[in-house]
Nucleic acid binder design. Structure first.
Lengths: 228, 228
DNA sequence: AATTCATTTAGGGTATGATCGAAATATGAA
DNA sequence: TTCATATTTCGATCATACCCTAAATGAATT
């Protein structure tokens, strides 16, 4: 009765708290060196090193070497998907300190999820686009309307310019903190990229959270009527 | 740096091999009593009982009591989704015995995945429907064509009869054994249900595999040109 | 009430694996 | 070559938790 892929092996890799912190730290798709991850997870170098080799061995992480630095990142978007889905059925963590509570608030308010926006900000933008009929939902996918196309063009995104990208255009992704949906897929990534390029949004250096800038705030207010 | 849902907690629940067997045994959506699960996982009653209480505590399983029996089932479709996705990034199990190898072959050839068909059979039906243009793929979703509607009607499925079901109509689900796609969502469930109702397909009593009947084989040959 | 079947609690043996300091290795800079 | 930094290997310690047997509980049937 064991004729299945080795689910328990992968789950075991994810289950160890230190490794879970490592994976979560890499969920926004960036690559980090071992020492940085050791600092984030608050464990010694030998410990993090042993965890990293297990994660690479299990194909959850990839490693790229530049000189004496090794940068670790998630092995694929599928891994990020599994982690996000696990987040959806997982209970929230117990908050133990004020600092942690602040981090939590930041991350819930706005963060990146692999390559698109999530958290309250991601959900609010998505819902504003829906209510203004810039996008509509059809069969569990988002479609951009005529006026939506103009709006995206105005902020610098050419909907029809995505070339031969075989990626899903835009689908709803259940947000673990809001229990509502935000946009993932090609469109989600395009929005996030543009927001960073135009400095409407900046990334935190310590966690997955992101911060709306003055410029970004004005843009959302003026073009979508969004107060944040 | 821990301001996230408790991914490691859920992963730990799934990671224990005995619990993984229990979860996999319930992946087709059916409900089983503790003693049956103890037999399948080849552990004692106390052991399985302790695992089951942890899985219920962690909201991965639900329990329903009928008299002195307690039936356990997956808590939600989301749990099944997580398990299936984990299967996609997990390495295949080591085959240790002939019996296990036979089970493996059965399960790979045809099985249920929560409430729709998977394995070689699920993939072949999906690909036949695509090549005959009964369904087409559009933006990562399947749509039923005019002639497809007739085909579904012929086998007893009214596409337009799904009432107020808010479920995704039909989307591709990556199959861990085939590394190709089968149909999930409302349509996937409708197909599976109809195949069981009409006895074109029967379930194994010991694992997730299913067997095409004589009648079922003829139907697929005559209406889709599928040789299985 | 007594019996039977399903499941849970209790307690102890055992194994796995996470952790760290110290030392070793690998890479680039001086 | 020598030094400095990044990472891994080694060895020992320690905690977690899985597993079983035996006994207890809970729920129907007689």
């Amino acid at each position: 009765m064991n004729a299945y892929p080795n689910i328990s092996y992968v789950a075991k890799l994810i289950s160890e708290p230190t490794r879970a912190i490592i994976l979560e730290s890499l969920m926004d798709g960036k690559a980090l060196p071992a020492s940085e991850l050791a600092y984030m997870a608050k464990v010694s170098h030998p410990t993090v090193s042993s965890h990293l080799s297990k994660l690479v061995e299990g194909n959850l992480l990839k490693v790229e070497q530049f000189g004496r630095h090794r940068y670790y990142k998630l092995a694929s978007e599928q891994v990020a998907e599994v982690l996000e889905k696990l987040g959806n059925i997982a209970p929230p963590v117990q908050i133990r300190s004020l600092k942690q509570s602040d981090q939590m608030k930041q991350v819930r308010s706005a963060r990146t999820c692999y390559d698109h926006l999530a958290g309250e900000l991601g959900v609010k933008i998505t819902e504003a686009l829906l209510s203004q009929e810039m996008i509509i939902i059809k069969d569990d996918q988002y479609e951009v309307t005529k006026q939506g196309e103009e709006w995206f063009q105005k902020i610098g995104i050419e909907i029809n310019n995505r070339g031969k990208s075989r990626r899903v255009f835009a689908k709803p992704c259940l947000d673990w903190s809001e229990r509502r949906y935000h946009i993932s897929g090609w469109l989600g990534a395009a929005i996030a990229t543009q927001f960073f390029n135009e400095k409407w949004l900046i990334k935190s250096t310590t966690n997955r959270s992101v911060q709306l800038t003055e410029k970004g705030s004005i843009l959302l207010k003026e073009t979508l009527g969004l107060d944040i």
